[in-house]
Simulated scan of single mutants.
Amino acid sequence: MTEITFTLSRDPYGKLLMSTADGQVIEGVAPVRAFPIQSPDEGISLVRGDGKEVAWIEHVNDLPAASRALLVEELEGREFMPEISRVKSVSSFATPCTWDVATDRGDTQFVLKGEEDIRRIGAASLLIADNHGIQFLIRDMFTIDKHTRKILDRFL
């Protein structure tokens, strides 16, 4: 466990503040994940508005509970990446086409403009960008249901 020498809080406007052990307060820090897909709870940088790193967090669990809750809340507010659990149907195997999917945030439909909007991340993960730029994640294409796997194989 890495020793954490700062705490996180919010200012009256909801911006994240970092208070160091020596009393310095850095306003408007933002968390950035180093590996958002493969290791989302490890390697988180806190950066100022100008992009300069002010702290490094080895693992989310290294933080005290109150700071950890604020960090997770801030990350969830900044990152919107629904995880696809099942592809129900596609309108066509030619692009553009409409995908009807079940995600961890509910069922939705999106338009896939082209096959190039499906990117492999590591050995088993996929990122699918819709026509509005929203990124959908398939964490492990090898453990997803057979129907979804058949559809994915047609596009890969």
Rank of each mutant, 00 (worst) to 15 (best):
P96I: 04
I134A: 07
C97S: 12
I57N: 02
F80L: 09
N61F: 09
V54A: 04
Q109K: 13
E116S: 14
V29C: 03
L46T: 07
K150S: 14
D153S: 15
W99M: 03
P12V: 09
T143S: 15
R154L: 11
E3Q: 13
L152I: 14
T95W: 04
V101G: 00
I84Q: 03
R105V: 04
V60P: 04
L8A: 04
I37G: 00
R120T: 10
K15Q: 14
K150D: 14
I121Q: 12
K146R: 14
Q109G: 05
K52V: 15
A21G: 04
D153Y: 10
G77D: 11
T148D: 01
N131I: 02
I57T: 05
T7P: 01
D11H: 01
K52I: 14
R105M: 05
P64E: 12
W56F: 15
G133V: 08
D62C: 06
I144V: 14
E27P: 00
A102K: 12
E79S: 04
G77Y: 01
G28W: 01
S89D: 12
P36I: 09
S67R: 08
G14R: 07
L8W: 06
D41F: 11
D107C: 07
D140W: 07
L112T: 00
I4Y: 03
L112H: 00
G14V: 09
L17C: 08
